[in-house]
Design a protein around this nucleic acid. Sequence first.
DNA 1: TCAACTTCGTATTATCCGTTACATCGCCGC
DNA 2: GCGGCGATGTAACGGATAATACGAAGTTGA
Lengths: 294, 294
Amino acid sequence: METSGGWRVDGGNRDDDRASISERAREAFDRLTARERKAAQTLLANYPTVGLAPVAEFAERAHVSAPTVLRFVAKLGFQGYPDFQRHLREELEAQLASPLAKPSRGGRARNPQRAAIDPFVESAIANLQNTFRHVGENEFMAIVDLLCDRRRAVHLIGGRFTDALARYFAAHLGLVRPAVRHVPSGIGVWRDRLLDMNRRDVLIVFDVRRYQEDVVSFARKAAERGASIVLVTDQWMSPLARQAAHVLACRITAPSRWDSGISLLAVVEALTAAVTDRLGEFARERMEELERLR
Amino acid sequence: METSGGWRVDGGNRDDDRASISERAREAFDRLTARERKAAQTLLANYPTVGLAPVAEFAERAHVSAPTVLRFVAKLGFQGYPDFQRHLREELEAQLASPLAKPSRGGRARNPQRAAIDPFVESAIANLQNTFRHVGENEFMAIVDLLCDRRRAVHLIGGRFTDALARYFAAHLGLVRPAVRHVPSGIGVWRDRLLDMNRRDVLIVFDVRRYQEDVVSFARKAAERGASIVLVTDQWMSPLARQAAHVLACRITAPSRWDSGISLLAVVEALTAAVTDRLGEFARERMEELERLR
DNA sequence: TCAACTTCGTATTATCCGTTACATCGCCGC
DNA sequence: GCGGCGATGTAACGGATAATACGAAGTTGA
């Protein structure tokens, strides 16, 4: 691994005093040994709480030994574990003192990696907010109603990339209610599945731009047979929107050549949560029974 | 190790029935003696950091003696000072999990639909921020390096719910580089796939809590055969972290009985974007060729 | 394949920390 | 003013925690 950026010739203390501990941990990363990196990752993943726990607990959570954790904090430039904890507390206090200040990143130049990541997070957040801002509450709850009707069968289908989301949704829905079926890619079995569908059924379709023709035509045939179509699509809307009983339009733009599925997933998870909640006792019992069958 | 699904029976916190510690301190205030009240005020004025310091420091800051502080925390109902600190850390951790989920408590009541949706978006945003805030840039770029090495084969596997994410990633990666293979669920073909793996290969594993034993053991065998393991997990970390060359710890808590995969998806998309970008011309040509073959 | 080196965990030691017993102080009633 | 009682600090104790020394295991390079 490249070490040119890691080693501070100037002794580094002036800078280290200002750098937050999480930044220090990232900076020191290439100087660390394999096990010490586990410790660093554990700290960053549970920042800063693990660091405030005794060494033994820290070590256990990181699946390393206590001395490894101690060597890790030593390499970060602390006198010892108590010293490390003292700095953590001071940092936490300073951070909580000005709640409006965004944590860390105080005027430091972003390095190129961060420049690649941060816009990504920002656009994802914007997508989430804009998606749910425009989702009609009535629309959302009507879909929940539909999915909570246990007499209806629920079929899920997705396109090239969104098929994974259909599977994700199916995996969760199938745990809280019966008659949930994912329609796999490849039109081999599609004809058979169409035969099963009638006016009682619900078909959830994921279709985003470069809208997939075969998926749309499958859904249209299902609609002709009387199935209720729930369409999860992007802001420009799949042509299937005409036939759909309910449409959820999600924001998918990203600073990349690819579109983002994050807001689609958020919709899926929000629906899952709402349905689980609404089904309440029924869902609970079903899950327990599934647990027993395992 | 739990292999059951994502259903969380408890809310994730054993002490949900008890009030927050600061509330407890205010509530118990009249029952306290004069000096103990100084301790309580000091704690509330510097919440929660003084409580995370050793007793002596707490006592000094409150201008009382250590035993007074001890009596104070005892009256709050804790078994002892370490117990008190443990609760403080847990509370802090829970609070950091969704720092944006606080607002709009005092205003007019939200309508029930919004109440179901907004906390969901807020926690998703917090998860995204906290996940990427602590992702090491070196770690991230090292993984990108790995995935841009076209001589290596890339295998992807996920658990019960995360399998969909593995598919999603595989679908995208497969477009920009060769030798990308998703490992399907069900251990039927796993043995064969293991045979294919050697030290040139990369195995990307998705494993979140209630970590799935079969996935972990598969990955361990792959690691024994020399494959490089890239683990995408949650903040508590799959036991596989021990064997993994690279770990991405994502925040997954949600105001629901289910965990959220949004930050995992964000990581996947960020990696996809970075790899596509890095491969540049090669990726472009490959995609054009795939387009022609269609 | 072996040797030198690094890394890492086990076991031990030393230190700090929380705890508790007890003495003192202050307060109130008598 | 005196005696009792609660509140508080001092000091000693016991235990847990951090630090360290050492040996095992793994890695690298010849």
